[in-house]
């Protein structure tokens, strides 16, 4: 006879009865969580299991990246074992990490490397909130895959009035401790379907998550072609050009195009917007996996175009870099 699963949510622990969904049991405890259709469609009751893998049926229709991260829909979740659950935006504790490297990649973009001591789980391409000692917080994408050295790499672009980015560029010193949140976001590589073609389009420091995703895919033995299109308005937003060319020499299935979209710029790179060049070069995206990172307008336009060109909605992963207008 099966035991009744115990559910932990924050400070509360309670049982989930056999005839009720996890959502029902939360509501019975007067725990307010968002919900809508109660039939696994609207995804308003999206939650995450911190420990046990949720039942597969509670993950139907979710993006594979969210499934990998143990997200599920509470309204169709009938727990089979004890679970500790949380809301998607519920912030875990911040951990500390020290600056171990700062290096300019282009006049605008700095390579920041942090080292952490506390165990930390992430997928390359996810983002974290970085908090400086006075409490100012900004989100940055992780550009590397997890490895034994316990480091996180970021590409931080200096924005004209960016409080955080200018501080990183000008004042942040080696050895300084920053706080960082748990890794978030659903734009990352999931193993399996190793022969699927991948299309990655990024503008400016939108290359950061893509660089991590490519490293992840290649490390996990992705066999299908991987096409990266990196673009910028001017030369200050292009970087890692040599590294990416070397990568394309080392891996036959990796292809790289750098482009410049601004007028009257003399460069050896392809002229035009990265997304226009990418989408014009491929007739059909049916069966492709598509990653779009960087300028929000580029991401939204390309998302629609990639879908219209045949990519399935479930196979399009995006990370739009929204910039706070006033004091970014």
């Amino acid at each position: 006879m099966a035991t009744i699963p115990r559910i932990t949510f924050g400070e509360a622990t309670f049982s989930c009865q056999p005839d009720e969904s996890l959502l029902d049991s939360l509501l019975r405890q007067n725990i307010q969580v968002p919900f809508g259709c109660r039939q696994g469609v609207c995804q308003a009751c999206l939650m995450r299991s911190i420990d046990a893998a949720p039942p597969e049926s509670a993950q139907a229709g979710l993006k594979d990246t969210l499934q990998t991260q143990n997200f599920f829909l509470a309204c169709v979740c009938h727990p089979e074992q004890d679970m500790t659950v949380a809301l998607p935006n519920q912030q875990g504790a911040f951990i500390e990490a020290n600056v171990i490297k700062k290096q300019l990649l282009s006049p605008d973009i700095i390579h920041l490397v942090l080292e952490y001591q506390t165990p930390f789980n992430f997928f390359a391409g996810q983002f974290v909130n970085l908090k400086r000692p006075d409490g100012l917080i900004r989100s940055y994408s992780i550009a590397n895959i997890p490895h034994a050295k316990n480091v996180l790499e970021f590409h931080i672009r200096r924005l004209p009035k960016g409080q955080f980015s200018n501080w990183v560029h000008e004042e942040l010193k080696l050895g300084t401790a920053l706080s960082l949140s748990a890794a978030q976001g659903a734009c990352h590589y999931v193993p399996g379907r190793a022969t699927q073609p991948l299309l990655l389009i990024g503008t400016g420091s939108g290359l950061a998550p893509l660089y991590g995703i490519i490293a992840d895919a290649l490390t996990q033995g992705h066999q299908g072609p991987i096409h990266l299109f990196h673009g910028s308005r001017d030369l200050n937003g292009l970087y890692f050009i040599d590294e990416l060319r070397e990568l394309s020499e080392k891996f036959n299935n990796f292809h790289y195009v750098a482009s410049i979209s601004g007028d009257n710029i003399d460069s050896k790179h392809v002229k035009g917007r990265a997304n226009d060049i990418a989408l014009a070069s491929i007739d059909s995206l049916s069966g492709w996996r598509v990653f779009l990172c960087g300028h929000p307008e580029m991401v939204n336009q390309s998302k629609k175009m990639a879908f219209m060109k045949g990519a399935s909605m479930a196979d399009i992963y995006t990370d739009a870099f929204h910039v706070l207008q006033a004091d970014s």
């Binding site: 469609v41 609207c42 995804q43 629609k304 909605m313």
Partner: peptide, 14 residues
Amino acid sequence: DMEKQAAKQKAFLT
């Protein structure tokens, strides 16, 4: 939001 829109279409088709 295309993702949400697709979820609604799915509900309608179901």
